[in-house]
Design a protein around this nucleic acid. Structure first.
Lengths: 231, 231
DNA sequence: GCAACACAATCGTCATACTTTTACTTCCCG
DNA sequence: CGGGAAGTAAAAGTATGACGATTGTGTTGC
C-alpha cells in the first residue's frame, strides 16, 4: 500500500510536514538540501519529489527550487494527502470536508446498493447490523468501530460504482479518526445503531428510497455531531 | 498541470496504454526494456514508474519486474487516471461512474452553495444561466459547453467544500467528453436549460432545497441520457 | 535609468557502478 | 523419489559524477 523504499521514507517525512503546514505554502526547498537533511542520494530525492509533484503539492522550478504549492491546488482526493491532513494540524478542516462528502455519497451508494447488492452482501450487512447493536450495548468501542467500518465499506462496494467503492478507506479513516480523538459519544447512540439496522433491512428488501433516507440520516447526524464538537 | 519533462512524456505514453487496456492487468514490464523502447535513461523511467506506483497502477518487484496491478486497485480519483480512462477503451465505464458521482455530489454542492455563495458567485451564476439560454437557442454547442462547464464549476466552488471544488475539472471533462463524442442532443434541451436557470435562481434566493432538487434533476437526467445512449 | 549581456544557481538527464532482494535451479541427503 | 538447503542470476534499488538546459539576478555600458 505504501510507497516502498527510501523514497517512501522521504515521502513519509515530507508529506505530513507539508500537509501539516510545518513547511508552509510558498516555501522553497532545494534538492541538495534534502539530500543532506535526509542523507539520501539525488535519485531518491527526485523520486519522492516527483510523487509530490504528481499530487500537485510541489512544483520544481529551475534556478529557483522546489516550491510548495498553495493548499488549494493539492490533489485533495489522493488517499495519502487525506491521511496526512487527518494526521496533522488540518485535521478539523479535513474532517469537515469529508463529512460533507459522506453526506453526498453514502446515501447515493445506499440507494444503489439496494438495487445491486449481491445476496452475500445483504447477508453480511444484516449480520453486521446485529453485531453493531450488540457491541454498542456493551460499549465495546473498538469492536464497534471495526464493524462500523466494515458496514459502510460493504454499502459502498455493493453500490456497484468503483469510485464509491474506493472511498471505503477514506470513510474508514474518518470513523477511526473520530473514535480515536474522542469526537464520539462514549457509547454509540442507540438511534444511530437503529438507523444502521434500517439501512441493512432496506437494502435487503431492495428499498432504495428507504436505504437512501436512513443512510442520509446517519451521515448527516455524524456531520452535525462533528460540527458541534469542533466548534 | 502536467508532469514536466521526459518522465511526463513517458507517463503520457504508459498511462493511457495501461488505462486503455493495451497493456493488460498482470502484464510485467522491465525497466531496462522501457529504457530502450523510449530511449530514455534509467532515471527517467524510474521517476515515471514511481508516479504510476503512487497511483497504484503498477507495482515494481525485485527479480520480477514492474507488474500492472488490477484495475480495481487503481486510484480512480486521480485526475490523470480519469483523463486516461476517458480517452481510451474504458470511456463508457468511466462516464457511468462519473455520472453517478455527479448525481451524488452536485445536488449536495448546490444546496451548500445556496447558503455559502458570495454575491459575485450569485451574479455570475445568473449571468451564465442567461448565456446558456441564449446559446442553447442559437444551437451554439461550443459556447454552450464552455458556459455549462463554468456554471457547474461555480456551483462546486461556491459550495465552500474544497473536495467538491476539486471535482470541477472532472465534471468539465465529462461535459466536454459527452459533447465531443456526440452523446448529447444536437441542440441542448430547453428543459435542461430551464433547470439551470432554476438552480441559479434558487442559489441566489438562498433556497437550498430547491437548488438541490433542480440540480439533481439535471444530473440525473444527464445520467439517464448517458445510459440510454451507451446501451 | 534602462536595456542587453554575462553569470551562476538550480533542476533535468545520462551513464555507470554497486547493492539488495528474491525467484529459480541445482544438487545433495534422506 | 522427494524435499530441503545452498548457490546463482536477474531484476529493481541506490549512489555518484558529469554534463545540459533554463532562468533569475546582477552588472555593465550606453
Amino acid at each position: 500500500m505504501e510507497i516502498q523504499g527510501l523514497p517512501g521514507r522521504l515521502l513519509a517525512d515530507l508529506g505530513p510536514a507539508i500537509a501539516g503546514g510545518e513547511i508552509p505554502e510558498g516555501a522553497v526547498l532545494r534538492a541538495e538540501e534534502l539530500e543532506g537533511r535526509f542523507q539520501v542520494s539525488r535519485t531518491v530525492v527526485r523520486e519522492a519529489v516527483r510523487i509530490l509533484e504528481s499530487m500537485r503539492m510541489v512544483a520544481p522550478k529551475r534556478r529557483v527550487g522546489i516550491t510548495v504549492r498553495p493548499k488549494s491546488e493539492w490533489d485533495v482526493f489522493d488517499p495519502l494527502v487525506i491521511r496526512w491532513r487527518l494526521a496533522g494540524a488540518d485535521r478539523a478542516a479535513q474532517l469537515r470536508s469529508l463529512g460533507s462528502l459522506r453526506v453526498a455519497v453514502e446515501p447515493a451508494a445506499a440507494a444503489l446498493a439496494a438495487v445491486h447488492a449481491s445476496d452475500d452482501d445483504r447477508r453480511e450487512l444484516s449480520a453486521l447490523a446485529v453485531e453493531l447493536t450488540v457491541t454498542a450495548r456493551a460499549a465495546d468501542l473498538e469492536t464497534f468501530l471495526a464493524h462500523d467500518i466494515a458496514f459502510h465499506a460493504i454499502v459502498l462496494r455493493a453500490s456497484g460504482n468503483e469510485m464509491f467503492a474506493h472511498l471505503k478507506d477514506t470513510v474508514g479513516a474518518v470513523l477511526t479518526g473520530r473514535t480515536e480523538h474522542h469526537l464520539m459519544p462514549h457509547q454509540p447512540r442507540p438511534y444511530a445503531v437503529q438507523l444502521h439496522r434500517e439501512v441493512a433491512e432496506a437494502i435487503c428488501a431492495g428499498d432504495a428510497a428507504l436505504a437512501e433516507r436512513s443512510m442520509r440520516t446517519i451521515v448527516a447526524g455524524a456531520l452535525d455531531e462533528l460540527n458541534a464538537t469542533l466548534d
